[in-house]
Nucleic acid binder design. Sequence first.
DNA 1: CAAATTATCTTGACAGTGTCAAATTACCAT
DNA 2: ATGGTAATTTGACACTGTCAAGATAATTTG
Lengths: 201, 201
Amino acid sequence: MTGRKSYHHGNLHQELLEEATRMIGEQGVDGISMRALAERVGVSRTAAYHHFKDKNALLCAIAEQGFEKWQAHFAQQMHEQSGDMNGWLKAFVHAYLDLSWKYPEEYDLMFGRPVWKNGEPTESLRAASFACFQHYVDLIRSWQGKGKFSKDIDGLRLAQVSWSMLHGMSRLLNDGIYLDRNSIDAMSDSAVEMILAAAAV
Amino acid sequence: MTGRKSYHHGNLHQELLEEATRMIGEQGVDGISMRALAERVGVSRTAAYHHFKDKNALLCAIAEQGFEKWQAHFAQQMHEQSGDMNGWLKAFVHAYLDLSWKYPEEYDLMFGRPVWKNGEPTESLRAASFACFQHYVDLIRSWQGKGKFSKDIDGLRLAQVSWSMLHGMSRLLNDGIYLDRNSIDAMSDSAVEMILAAAAV
DNA sequence: CAAATTATCTTGACAGTGTCAAATTACCAT
DNA sequence: ATGGTAATTTGACACTGTCAAGATAATTTG
């Protein structure tokens, strides 16, 4: 009846990740508990602790997957619009806000406090998240190299500030502070213009 | 021995707010619990519930005070540098990041999820926080009126996007993602330049 | 001034939570 | 078959927020 074929679940690690991701999508990061998760998977309260040191470790693992998905997504998008920098930037900003809006709970986990401040992030999460950002930095620098972006401004700074802008918008939107969904397109455009204006060659 | 002169505390409401603010400064938003707070004030576990409907209501009240302090601070700073718009913007950006860095836990409470997403924010908190932002919008618009900012861009958009930038930077800094404290001055300058570039007349 | 009402605070209780220690069960290599 | 190890469970502890009911003080009313 239950999916368990044997005492040993056989695939608990993976199934925990999947079910937890599902729960986060449904009830948010705070709506997840080790006990409820265990019950949904059909296993005892503390079973998960043999696959993840902590609740934090579990959350880190999910966040890590999130970053990998994001990177894959943006890498593909970059591939499709490789030539046109102007168009790519617009698409990137739009996609960033769109994704963070469509999957607010996952975004919240990836960039949220529970993982980053309270429970120290896993080393592998650090790596995955940083790789995501590093790609962005490299891209900007390559455009500077090609003369499409001004070299007067440090590429890293531009990446930091522009990412901050997108992050801030996403958070304010998702949390319902100041910004509202209706003007999201107009704000996207303003954001793009702002980045371009700052990097005008 | 205890500060209580009588059965009725006499000033519980205020003292709860103060002690809670202190606790948040020390241990962060998540480090606060109704029970621990009650004990520190020297009162029983559930005494606070006669002054605040919820834990959420308490947090909202503290956040509200935070917004009022912020607004007062920026209003005074605005007063000191009333003439020079360029200088004010620089001072504003610097002060924003400085404050959110100095009081990360309070900032986290004011703009954080526990209040805005999970437990719905109090109506009065909504008002206080929005007033804070509205002042910023009005200021930008007045500069547009004086011809110091371009009128091509909508003042509200500019306010939204630039505030998002500051908010994003604050969060990334405080949570330890991507940005690091060492380059905060350089990032501040880049942020200012970016805003000015977008609003160049 | 006495009685009743109201505001304030306490005690008890319940359903949750994360997580550790020890016992239990199943698998795997010798 | 027999150890040994990996996986899972049960029990327990110290927390959490918050509700309901009782206890106490202040305040209003007669």
